[in-house]
Amino acid sequence: MTNKTAPKLGLILLMAPLLIWLFALILLPHVDMFMLSITEKVAPRVYETGLGNYGEFFAEPLYWNTYARTAIMSILTTIVTLVIAFPVSYYIAKMLRGRMKAVLFVLCLLPFWVSELVRTFGWMILLRETGIISTFLQWAGLADQPIEMLYTDATIVVGLVYTSMLFMVVPLVTTLESLDDSYIEAGYDLGGNGFTVMREIVIPHAMPGIVSGCIVVFMLSLGNYLTPILLGGKDSLWFTEQIYAQFITRFNWEQGAAFGFLLLILSSLIVWGGLKLSRQTLSETMG
């Protein structure tokens, strides 16, 4: 490099978009949201700084019940997704070879290119009172009247599991593929059976994939709005609904900001905890 100033200028030009993006669209908005969440309305047009909005959250059972319920159902969703996805990922990564493997993997991904709204709509058509499954059960003689399968907790979990599947299958297939078959063979040669080989070799090896899949699925379920509303109905009691209601319906932004922050804290804690448990960093997991 003959010209020393040019790279410097280049660096500044390259950095400008990054800094503008991160500060103006990510950092400052979150700081501002936090400031708003510790602002209390004491009288019309009079505001004070304080933790009243967070106090309100703990004082009103509906709020923290919804919060806890959202967290628990998201954990449940994560577990169910993992249990369903693991054998499928293993099959794709280890049992199949060549073209068949590529085809099945793509087939796994394709549904997720379609909008979440469309996928949820599909479940509504299947599960509603006049839906396909209810009609089928009546036709088969297994039910003598229409069955409403929408608007239950189980329906919400079914929808969330469906929506999250991709984010579990991809990291699992990737980590399982990197496991050398000879380790599994060695496990059997040394007298292991299917169960012990799974427990001692395959699962420890797949742990990074399991963790990153679980983190993403949990976070997406926690922050989901569409699926709980459409499949769970008005009483689905999902925490994002509370946030939406405070912001848009009741126009109580201070309270909504506090709720938003509480959700962000929960989601970040889980991500952080998951990474700590598996001794990974955010850059490795996502990048």
Partner: peptide
């Protein structure tokens, strides 16, 4: 979560 990105931007 996407909804948090949305509200933070709305507030800011």
């Amino acid at each position: 979560p996407g909804i948090i990105l949305g509200i933070s931007m709305l507030v800011f």
